[in-house]
Amino acid sequence: MALIAIIDDDPDILDASSLVLKSKGHDVVTATNPKDGLKIITERKPNLIILDVMMDEPDDGFFLAQKLRRENIQTPILMYTSVSKAIGMDFNKSEMVPVDDFVEKPISPDELVAKVEALLNKVEEKR
């Protein structure tokens, strides 16, 4: 079982995601903004980070992802996006967005669980 950090400014999304992941036996820590997010990541060293795009925040999710990589924190990141399809913006893994996978909101429990398991397995294999 893994420790998963979820960072999203929507408390409802945090609760829903936590419930899904906890039901699969994972431990969950949450934060509602990038600043607190960085804090729980450095303090608790989770196995996986779920990070929302958080377009409303001055330092958004992309910014935090880049910062983590710069500080050489290589924990896999699963990014929550909400409007990429609506505004015709497609994200791809790249230098600009150093994340490992994307989940489009609204979250479907099965998809979330599948993507989380896949990323955790990948980390396991590398070891």
Binding site: I13, A16, S82, P109
Partner: peptide
């Protein structure tokens, strides 16, 4: 403006749909 509106509209919708997905998913046993 359209992308801002889309974002603002989708945020509550995503939350609501997330909750409904959880309630409908029997394996979670809520």
């Amino acid at each position: 403006f359209v992308s801002m509106v889309a974002h603002e509209l989708k945020t509550p919708l995503a939350a609501v749909q997330g909750f409904i997905n959880i309630i409908l998913n029997d394996s979670l046993g809520v």
